[in-house]
């Protein structure tokens, strides 16, 4: 009895297997071997930064539709070079980009709340409930959708509960950009250092009052006047840096009265300046004393 059952099911499987094996010969489709090679080179994260459905789709698009080979953000220059070798083209890497969160509130630096949010733990839900729990209509609602969205573990929380982007891990794929319902995240050239970390379109005083961190951009135009390259403009009550013109000088960050413009080197520069001042002061004093003694 069992033997018959095994024989029948096994026989069915065998027949189907043979038919399929035969069919795969008859209906064989030639696939360009380059597609497979490129597919192996690509990171395989299927992040969609290239704008095509998955790494496989991108590999096929490169070979059959001639799509540019530098669209893979996570892969970076390495991958572009490898694809270029496969395709027999010259490598032309795109500038590496990283994500920047244009808001400084969150964690212990909370904005003020208009109500306590206890709904579903996602930013998308939080912003739909009477425009978000925090007083600032434009700021981060810290339900951490960006952390969830990040495919490379590049976004984490620091000791203050702020979202920090790891510059080494971030590949500039833009998954977090799509995830943020407030559109606070932007992909920026990795070399650029100075960023406006505020998106509040509220008028100056109101923006500052609503921001729990009081680091809102108040559209005072000091940075606009100070910038040597005319790279900053005020758009809708927020300073916006034109990254094509920015030269990383950080003068805007020095002059910003609220600290909305961030430059990681600002403090170092300030220390150096203070040290130089102190030195000058000391030299002056020494000179004065010397003169006194001489007198």
């Amino acid at each position: 009895m069992i033997v018959i059952a095994i024989a029948i099911i096994g026989g069915l499987g065998l027949i189907f297997g043979l038919v399929l094996a035969f069919a795969s010969r008859v209906f064989h489709v030639e696939v360009d071997p380059k597609i497979e090679q490129i597919g192996e080179v690509l990171p395989g994260a299927n992040c969609g930064a290239c704008g095509l459905p998955g790494c496989g789709g991108y590999a096929e698009a490169i070979v059959s539709e001639g799509v540019a080979i530098n669209r893979c953000a996570p892969g970076g220059a390495d991958v572009v070079e490898k694809i270029a070798q496969i395709m027999g083209m010259t490598a032309d890497a795109a500038d590496p980009k990283i994500a920047v969160i244009h808001c400084q509130s969150g964690g212990k630096n909370n904005t003020f709340f208009r109500y306590e949010y206890e709904g579903i733990k996602t930013c998308k839900a939080a912003v739909t409930l009477s425009n978000g729990p925090n007083l600032c209509d434009f700021g981060c609602v810290f339900q951490n959708d960006c952390i969830e969205a990040c495919l490379f573990d590049a976004i984490s929380l620091d000791e203050n509960g702020m979202r920090v982007i790891d510059k080494e891990k971030c590949t500039g794929c833009g998954a977090c950009v799509k995830a943020c319902p407030r559109n606070l995240i932007e992909l920026v050239d990795k070399k650029k250092r100075v960023h406006v970390l505020c998106m509040s379109h509220d008028k100056g005083a109101i923006a500052k009052k609503k921001c729990g961190n009081s680091t809102a951009c108040i559209a005072c135009t000091l940075c606009v006047k100070k910038c040597p390259k005319d790279a900053i403009s005020i758009v809708d009550n927020v300073a916006v840096i034109d990254y094509d013109k920015c030269i990383n000088c950080g003068m805007c960050a020095d002059v910003c009265p609220t600290g909305a413009i961030f430059d990681p080197l600002k403090e170092i520069r300030a220390e150096k300046k203070a040290a130089a001042l102190a030195k000058a002061e000391a030299a002056k004093k020494a000179l004065e004393e010397k003169q006194k003694q001489e007198a």
Partner: peptide, 25 residues
């Protein structure tokens, strides 16, 4: 062969092979 109880397995086998075939075509 009184194998009515193997219906589901046999059918799934058939359908899987069939779909594979259709896909190739």
């Amino acid at each position: 062969n009184n194998l009515g109880y193997l219906q589901t397995i046999a059918f799934i086998l058939t359908i899987a092979a069939l779909v594979q075939f259709v896909e190739m075509v």
